[in-house]
Amino acid sequence: MDLQIALLLGQDGITNGAIYALLSLALVLVFAVTRVIFIPQGEFVAFGALTLASFQAGKTPGTLWLLLGAGFVVAIVDLVVAWRRRKWRRVPAILGWNLVYPALMAGLILSIEPSKWPLLAQISLALALVVPLGPMMYRLAFQPLAEAPVLVLLIVSVAVHLVLVGLGLVFFGAEGSRAASFSDVSLDIGEFSITGQTLAVVLTSGVLIVVLYQFFGRSLYGKALRATAINRTGARLMGISTVMAGKLSFLLAAGIGALSGILIAPITTVYYDTGFLIGLKGFVGAIIGGLASYPVAAVGAVAVGLLESYSSFYASAFKEVIVFTLIIPMLLWRSLTTRHVEEES
């Protein structure tokens, strides 16, 4: 390997690593607030990418039908609860978010041609379609189990992942797609050139991390999420409802996932089931951070990206084996350094 190739691989690794880092942050967030190990994170990546690609190809994205369907089910479930508890005041909000909003999105997308829109508008539209699926997922799958043990939540999480992969196949088909590159600019440093896409990915990730940092450090709702993560009962006693914190963290995670998908859409061909492996690599990072530390998770995720990139050069067939075997020594290290106070989770 000469320097040229080393740098090229490094660029690849950092691009992927930045994405894994974003995902690992979302995973840490969701786990800390809800104790859910968020396996379906990868599906949001795939849906984000595929939705954008669908717009560009002039097709109606499958996520629209998914949003309409999920909204419908959530509305039914919530209306039943509201009726049972005689909480009529909630009805307008239930109808608005779960039926009216998806219907408006459907009207908008079907009446215009998103393929003719500028890139930023397409991206916003894709996010507007995919992100609400996060809270809806929380409502349907996890909210009824808010007090369940971590293991039950994990099994549900895996089940939801399977459902979404299956639905992804139904709505997007088995063919992969790739979005158009965000820019053709490339930055030349000597013989080495950095592509515009790399810059876009790294910059967007960096900005997003700063925004998240500000959100958690400054805003009341960000603090409320942190509070829930630190002491759930304490947070509830302040009036921070578990449901609100859960939906908010799923909203953020879905947003981060979908945006990550949009960022990689021009780099790689995304299939309906591509997200899973990408999400899991974010997990390796998150586990390096002990599912608790944001900075360690992010650094770990970048390391995963680099490892993956260089191992694809040396032993490309064993790339996945190497990356996922890495988790075992990481777990071992965790287990030797954490003094585990044993009691039921």
């Binding site: 190990i37 971590v150 293991l151 994990l154 899991l280 997990f283 390796v284 586990i287 599912l291 996922f324 075997t325 988790i327 075992i328 777990l331 965790r334 287990s335 954490t338 585990h340 044993e342 989770s345």
Partner: peptide
């Protein structure tokens, strides 16, 4: 030796 969620995550990885 790690109880809880690390074991299942480890099993996914291997």
């Amino acid at each position: 030796r790690l109880s809880g969620h690390y074991l299942p995550l480890g099993t996914i990885a291997w």
